[in-house]
């Protein structure tokens, strides 16, 4: 019973993630899409918790759900979407895209489960990475210091870029 519960948890979350994702990309109203995106992201945060990545789960909730989705909502408010809502939802190529993507997923699934037998990645090792936050801090500030600084630079550039792009008139 002890080992069944975690896997039940996983499959419930997985179902939630996939269903919400499908709904996200099919809603006509962009605001609804964002709400369902939040549901997907919450599911993923739950999955992170389930894998003992507590810090990441927190970041997911704070940055993604608290930050990025709000950004999306703001933009939706700024851009007049009433026009768009009346128009055709999907581009003309949607049927062939779905078929191709389905085929790709089937192939990927085939490879993953074929690989799961031959490859050793079927068995998660025991134990967990604890204390999680401390380990991540060590990785970020010691091992990946340079990439970390570069990432901060990237954010700065993106911030300035977004301000310049969204400004009404340059000069």
């Amino acid at each position: 019973m002890q080992s069944v519960l975690p896997s039940l948890f996983f499959y419930a979350l997985a179902t939630m993630i996939l269903v919400s994702a499908v709904v996200t990309i099919t809603r006509r109203n962009a605001v609804h899409s964002v709400i369902w995106l939040i549901s997907t992201l919450l599911g993923i945060a739950g999955l992170f918790l389930h894998q003992h990545a507590e810090f990441l789960a927190a970041v997911q909730v704070i940055v993604y759900i608290g930050g990025i989705t709000v950004l999306f909502l703001f933009v939706i408010m700024l851009v007049n979407l009433d026009e768009a809502a009346k128009k055709k939802q999907f581009a003309g190529q949607w049927k062939i895209v779905v078929i191709c993507a389905g085929a790709l997923l089937a192939e990927l699934g085939f490879f993953i489960f074929k690989g799961a037998e031959g490859f050793y990645f079927a068995e998660p090792a025991g134990g967990s990475l604890q204390p999680n936050t401390q380990l991540i801090a060590l990785a970020l500030y010691r091992d990946y210091l340079l990439p970390f600084e570069l990432a901060s630079l990237l954010l700065l550039v993106a911030m300035i870029g977004a301000v310049v792009l969204a400004k009404k008139d340059l000069k």
């Binding site: 994702a21 990309i25 962009a30 999907f90 581009a91 993953i112």
Partner: peptide, 22 residues
Amino acid sequence: FLSAALFTIGMIGVLTRRNVVI
């Protein structure tokens, strides 16, 4: 596999939706 499925759903969204925000 979950990751692959989610990726595929995202990809379908990118390729088929007409609304840039979505």
